[in-house]
Amino acid sequence: MNILEIEHCRKQFDGNEVLTDISLTVSEGQVVSIIGPSGSGKSTLLRCATLLETMDGGSLRYLGKSAVRDEGGKSVYASAAELKEIRSCFGLVFQNFNLFPHYSVLKNITEPPMLIQKRDRTEVLETARDLLEKMGLADKADAYPYQLSGGQQQRVSIARALAMKPKMLFFDEPTSALDPELTGEILKVIRALAAEHMTMVIVTHEMAFARDVSDHVIFMDGGVIVEQGDPHAIINNPSHDRTIQFLSRFN
């Protein structure tokens, strides 16, 4: 079953075409990594998929439900109520965490499910405690974000996303704001999620990680998908000049 279907996505910023005809399908349990030089449109693609940015053309569906449909090359968005429901299909983990600094770790995780999904308080608290346990942060429930390291904050933000029980997770360079010695703990968490068959789309510059964790790798440059396919094939034996050039910087 397909969780995410993006077809012919186009996006311009003041006349500048940032995404040109991007199509992407993610099926249940699949882990897709997106790599590419900075400015290639990776974040914009994720932001279109998570409804933070409106696309100009193309369509977007979650679980077969249409969030955006294409009418004669123009994107038409579903109603606010439909979009609200569709939003609960996915979570997004930001590069710089974006935790709510005035909430404790526990409240960061519990408020959204209780407020937005109207879920039962006891159940949500239990879910949150389990997630904190899993993230190795059981003792940090009452801490405030400023009291945590970057790696711990990012794990809280992953827990916050997971507490909503999304069908899939997007990660936009989840380790890029971290000190190198802290990236490992986040990659480990994502690996564990992959082992549990969490559906994920990950923008990353960690090539070895992308190769090991993903089922599918996409190389983007200049707003287009230049090359995609099997992670080992793309990262170890790229066929396009631009991919070769890009990857050579990592070896």
Partner: peptide, 20 residues
């Protein structure tokens, strides 16, 4: 980023403003 985090979690504009 505070607005965006709230939006992705499904907060309405009013909820985002009043709570976050």
């Amino acid at each position: 980023g505070q607005y965006e985090a709230a939006a992705v979690l499904g907060y309405s504009r009013t909820q985002t403003f009043m709570r976050i």
